[in-house]
Design a protein around this nucleic acid. Structure first.
Length: 284
DNA sequence: GACCAGGTATTGC
DNA sequence: GCAATACATGGT
């Protein structure tokens, strides 16, 4: 990982695309502001990051935080180029790739988010839309996270939420998901569910463990694995993916996308969201 | 005012 | 077992 420290910036070559990475539905806590800079919170740290002249700028971050937090968070050590070109080889997948990312440097990265945050966020995501998911997550952070800046809050720990009752979450307006959030927090707190040291478990074992939480089914479990536990072979299938697979890959199994199927999933999902017209029913 | 949203638990057959 | 259906809430 080569980087340059200049003024109050740490600068790297543009090896991935912020827009694709933040807008592909894996993460709910980063927004683009009017100054064209992305701001958000991860691992209890606020970050401002932006792209300019083929480079990516990390604003006001120490070298230590860059190396300890942001390099892993943005998965900067992994060679996404090879995966990009591999996917481009496939005819249909190639079309999708070109539409989403003209060059390898426009690729999206799978963020390594905090496991608990990913689990909790995707519990909130069920039968919900992205703007409201973001709103609920933000409200959860404001109410129960720690304030680390002006209008900037950390994601609340499971310890903090485990001692609450579902009614205590009324203000975040998460509806029927409140009791799921509390159940998840308690099961992680008690150790019944372990989100750490999960490397020895297979995807199936992990999924079964996560599904012990009320409100966690196959899809939320798979999202937690891909976005929170960096299981790149997890392949979450939601309503969009179901439609997309039926249309583009009718006889293809998730496994056949290989050990980085999760990345393929993310492109197929993004592509489908960008082209909803492809799924509209034709009325004769 | 239905209808829908990165689903899941519950119910009915 | 498998297909309906309810579930909270807010936005079209």
């Amino acid at each position: 990982m080569t980087y340059e420290v200049k003024d109050n910036y740490i600068i790297i070559e543009k090896t991935f695309d912020l827009e694709s990475t933040f807008l592909c539905g894996q993460c709910f806590r980063f927004d683009k502001y009017e100054d064209e800079k992305w701001r958000g919170v991860a691992f209890s740290k606020e970050l401002t990051i932006f792209e300019k002249d083929g480079k990516i700028y990390f604003e006001n971050v120490s070298e230590k935080d860059f190396l300890d937090i942001w390099v892993p968070f943005f998965d900067l050590s992994f060679d996404y180029d090879k995966v990009y070109y591999d996917f481009c080889e496939d005819e249909k997948m190639g079309e999708i790739m070109i539409s989403c990312a003209q060059n390898a440097s426009d690729c999206l990265h799978i963020l390594r988010q905090e496991p608990w945050e990913a689990l909790c966020s995707f519990i909130i995501s069920q039968n919900n839309n992205i703007p409201r998911i973001k709103k609920i997550v933000k409200s959860l952070c404001m109410l129960f996270g720690e304030k680390i800046g002006e209008d900037v809050y950390t994601f609340p720990s499971y310890e903090k939420l485990a001692v609450l009752e579902p009614e205590d979450l009324a203000e975040i307006r998460s509806g029927f998901r409140a009791r799921y959030i509390i159940d998840a927090a308690r099961k992680v707190q008690s150790g019944e569910i372990s989100l750490y040291d999960t490397d020895k478990l297979s995807v199936e074992e992990l999924r079964n463990m996560l599904m012990k939480i009320k409100g966690v089914g196959v899809k939320v479990a798979d999202c937690t694995m891909l976005y929170g536990l960096h299981r790149m072979d997890a392949f979450p299938i939601d309503t969009w993916m179901k439609k997309a697979m039926a249309k583009f890959f009718p006889d293809v199994s998730p496994e056949s996308f290989g050990m980085y199927a999760g990345i393929a999933q993310q492109y197929i999902f993004s592509y489908s969201r960008m082209h909803p017209e492809l799924f509209e029913e034709k009325n004769p």
